[in-house]
C-alpha cells in the first residue's frame, strides 16, 4: 500500500509539471512555485496550491486543469484542489527553470530584490540589457509590468517582484 501511494504521488507531481500557466505555456505551475503539497490517501489525491495574485482570473482555470491532469493517472478516483492562505506566494518561489521559461516567452523574470532606491534590476529577455524604462508597473495581467528596452528598443513584460519583506 505504502509503495503504491508513493508511486501515485510521484506520478501526480509528474502530471502537475504538465500544467502550464494558461497564458504562458513555457512555465508550469511547479516552475511558478504554486504547488505547496500533494497528499495521497487510498485513491484520492489532494493538491494544495498557492494563489499568485488573489484576483487572478487564471486561478479557476488552473484548478480545472490540475484536476484533469491528475485524473489521467489510472489509480486515481478522486482529486481535490485547494487554494490555501498560507504560506503567501512570493515571486522568489519561481524556480530557476521557471525563470528561464519566462524568458523564452519574452517575459523578464521578477527581480530578486528591490534596489535601495526602490528601482528594479531587470534584464531584457531579448538582448539581456539592463537598461530599461518602466512604462507601466501594471500590465496585461496582475503579475506583469510593461517595460521598454533602451538597447534593442523592444517593449517587454516583466514579472512583478512580490515580497513580504517590503
Amino acid at each position: 500500500m505504502e509503495a503504491s501511494h508513493s508511486l501515485i504521488e510521484t506520478e501526480a507531481w509528474r502530471q502537475l509539471d504538465t500544467v502550464c500557466d494558461p497564458e504562458i505555456d513555457t512555465v508550469t505551475i511547479i516552475d511558478l512555485g504554486m504547488v505547496d503539497k500533494v497528499l495521497v490517501s487510498d485513491n484520492k489525491v489532494s493538491v494544495d496550491l498557492l494563489p499568485t495574485f488573489l484576483g487572478c482570473p487564471a486561478l479557476g482555470i488552473i484548478k480545472e486543469n490540475v484536476i484533469k491532469a491528475i485524473k489521467l493517472i489510472d489509480e486515481v478516483k478522486e482529486v481535490e484542489v485547494n487554494y490555501i492562505k498560507n504560506p503567501p506566494w512570493t515571486s522568489d518561489r519561481i524556480t530557476s527553470k521557471g525563470r528561464e521559461g519566462l524568458k523564452v516567452y519574452g517575459i523578464a523574470p521578477p527581480p530578486l530584490k528591490l534596489e535601495n532606491d526602490g528601482t528594479w534590476k531587470v534584464e531584457c529577455p531579448y538582448c539581456g540589457s539592463p537598461y530599461h524604462s518602466v512604462e507601466n508597473i501594471f500590465g496585461p495581467s496582475a503579475c506583469r509590468s510593461i517595460l521598454y528596452c533602451k538597447n534593442c528598443k523592444n517593449p517587454y513584460e516583466a514579472m512583478k517582484p512580490i515580497s513580504t519583506m517590503n
Binding site: F53, L54, G55, P57, K85, N136, F138, S141, A142, I146
Partner: peptide, 20 residues
C-alpha cells in the same frame, strides 16, 4: 490608455481581496 491598464488591474486585484 496606460491608466486604463493600471486602474483596471488594481480594480481586479481589489475585487480579489473582496472575494477572499
Amino acid at each position: 490608455i496606460e491608466e486604463d491598464v493600471a486602474y483596471s488591474s488594481i480594480t481586479q486585484n481589489t475585487m480579489g481581496h473582496a472575494a477572499i
